[in-house]
């Protein structure tokens, strides 16, 4: 495609000279081609992290961090251990628990992952926590939010960032707009297929990290059993495919591939110990 565009521009420039169209600007045309090429590319890793930190900062503006250092450290250790089993072990992974009664979890580009205390409070062991974190980690690995931004109403700004037209330092208002658009994705939700993909990857990552891989479906099953009119689930329902569908797909995909790992530990006692120890 790029080659074709380049050929067209070159032939145009040749014919421009041949027919003496005068002020045809070859340099400008080449630049346009470069811009088209660049617009098809993704943001760099530092740009991704900068964008993600802005979105994470916004999330923390909407819901405070849970004031419980022991729980925060624990969730970071579980998350970081899982992240070490992935294709992106070296980005600055950071995990957190939001002081919010809603049942939800969020991932932002560059390795930011948050779960609400409302979700944490419905888990029974570390393998369940690992399953949920691994699902969120998978969104970061597959850059699902970046893809949503690229396809969304602010796609122009996304190209500008990829094109280095927006500097991440210096408070460019266009970056602020892009960060807001990135935060709004949580109100709208990701592509359903991206959710299914993260479920599918999440159970594998939990198994790689040495956990019982059935933690994620166990959480989904618990949530499925909660009254759907519970307002704490409203946003989750709006932004995610149904628990029925997710569980049905996982049931088909996990058996028998992950059966060999089902006797890995779920570390219920360690989980309970951390949750029971109030600071």
């Amino acid at each position: 495609m790029r080659t074709l565009v380049l050929m067209m521009v070159l032939s145009l420039s040749v014919s421009a000279q041949a027919f003496d169209f005068g002020n045809f600007d070859l340099e400008k045309a080449v630049k346009t081609v470069q811009k088209i090429k660049k617009a098809n590319e993704d943001v760099s890793e530092p740009q991704e992290i900068e964008l993600g930190s802005g979105i994470a900062s916004n999330l923390l503006g909407a819901a405070p961090l849970l004031d419980n250092p022991e729980v925060q450290r624990y969730v970071n250790r579980v998350g970081r251990w899982i992240a070490l089993q992935t294709e992106r072990p070296d980005i600055p992974w950071q995990f957190g628990v939001l002081d919010d009664a809603d049942i939800n979890a969020f991932a932002a580009p560059g390795g930011y992952v948050f779960i609400t205390k409302g979700l944490l409070a419905r888990m029974n062991n570390e393998a369940e926590l690992a399953g949920v974190l691994a699902h969120e980690i998978s969104h970061v690995l597959r850059k699902h939010h970046l893809q949503a931004l690229k396809k969304g109403a602010r796609s122009e700004l996304f190209s500008d960032l990829a094109n280095d037209a927006i500097k991440t330092q210096g408070g460019d208002p266009r970056l602020t707009k892009l960060v807001s658009a990135g935060t709004e994705i949580y109100a709208r939700g990701l592509d359903k297929q991206d959710e299914f993909e993260s479920d599918r990857m999440g159970v594998v990552l939990a198994a790689r990290a040495g956990y019982d891989p059935y933690g994620l479906p166990a959480v989904l099953q618990t949530l499925q059993s909660i009254n759907p009119n519970d307002s704490n689930l409203a946003l989750m329902f709006k932004t995610h495919p149904s628990f029925d569908k997710r569980l049905q797909l996982l049931a088909d995909e996990m058996t028998p591939a992950l059966d060999a790992y089902e006797r890995q530990p779920d570390l219920d006692v360690r989980f309970a110990g951390v949750m029971a120890a109030r600071k």
Binding site: S57, N58, G61, A62, D102, N232
Partner: peptide, 13 residues
């Protein structure tokens, strides 16, 4: 808890 509005109007912290 966290609502759509909260997310749309979120200010950085």
């Amino acid at each position: 808890g966290l609502s759509e509005e909260d997310l749309k109007n979120a200010k950085p912290n």
